[in-house]
């Protein structure tokens, strides 16, 4: 279940961004994710590196986080990925 845990947290982070009109700042995202700060930072770095989210800076210099097309696709395919890994014992 370790992988489900990892992918579940990533799914939750992405779902929070999506439900916030695809526009959320870092601190509220961390708070809503219910993950420890260190864990959150680790997963956030991963989703940023993999291009599932992007950071957008507005006119006032505030940084927001948005899902990319790949991020939306991940949410859509989440069940498929997790079921596949379980079925094939990977």
């Amino acid at each position: 279940m370790a992988n489900r845990g990892r992918f579940e947290i990533i799914r939750d982070i992405l779902a929070i961004i999506k439900s916030s009109n695809n526009y959320i700042q870092f601190t509220p995202l961390l708070r809503k994710s219910n993950a420890s700060s260190s864990r959150f930072k680790k997963y956030y770095a991963w989703i940023l590196e993999k291009g599932l989210v992007m950071e957008v800076v507005d006119n006032k210099g505030n940084k927001y986080i948005s899902l990319t097309e790949k991020g939306f696709k991940f949410l859509e395919k989440y069940e498929t990925i997790v079921n596949f890994i379980e079925e094939f014992e990977l």
Binding site: L52, I85, L90
Partner: peptide
């Protein structure tokens, strides 16, 4: 699914 997850087992 591999490109989305980058999962090693996959």
């Amino acid at each position: 699914i591999y490109e989305l997850s980058s999962y090693k087992g996959l």
